[in-house]
Design a protein around this nucleic acid. Sequence first.
DNA 1: CGGAATCCCTACGGATACTG
DNA 2: CAGTATCCGTAGGGATTCCG
Lengths: 119, 119
Amino acid sequence: MKIPDISISACGYSQVLEIISNKWAGSVIYALEDGTLRYGEVKNRIEDISQKMLTQTLKQLERDGLVRREVKPSVPPIVEYSLTDLGETLIPCMRMLKGWALNHYSSVNKAREEYDRTN
Amino acid sequence: MKIPDISISACGYSQVLEIISNKWAGSVIYALEDGTLRYGEVKNRIEDISQKMLTQTLKQLERDGLVRREVKPSVPPIVEYSLTDLGETLIPCMRMLKGWALNHYSSVNKAREEYDRTN
DNA sequence: CGGAATCCCTACGGATACTG
DNA sequence: CAGTATCCGTAGGGATTCCG
């Protein structure tokens, strides 16, 4: 009996992670959850993000079709970001992840302390 | 009116990611979903994983209390891995992520092609 | 069989300075 | 205001070799 290779079934999983696993993507999606924000507003809502990483993350999310970028031609420039319909579909997943964390993260921390004490 | 800082509310999210966002953790959890496996069996089920990363991932998951490691004292050694109860609680989240990927990843790919063509 | 140890390369990401 | 550009340290992770 051959043991099945699960790489393929796990593959969908790694594709999502490719999108949301970077350090800031989640925070950006959360920030845009309530509606449209200007660049600076996004930055203000995410305390420790650097300007470089915010720009880079927004660009990646735009490329993935999750975030929409609109430039109002004016001086000084106004650039607004919002979730696309596709981006909205990700919200339930992220809520579930966050829910898991809130419910179980203390267990994880206890396990870590225990592990670090005995190893 | 002050714009709220969402760092704290996104924090739970980043905690889960800390656990499952590394390249192989998801695949390992999927591999153990059906029950107990020996080290080599896990390795066989995950096609392209290196020995180093499998060991490292298993150790991390064990430290987080998601995976249980049992050594049968014998020669040659037998080491078995399985999900803990805490580990099992993560399965629904991962199924949901995978479901999202299966439903929407083609849209992401289309968005990327479109983006790359016009930029 | 189930690792540990080492080497090495790359990508991620922070800090800083500059621009239309 | 909303970015670009550059420098640079660190961590992730592959390949290889060795060990109980």
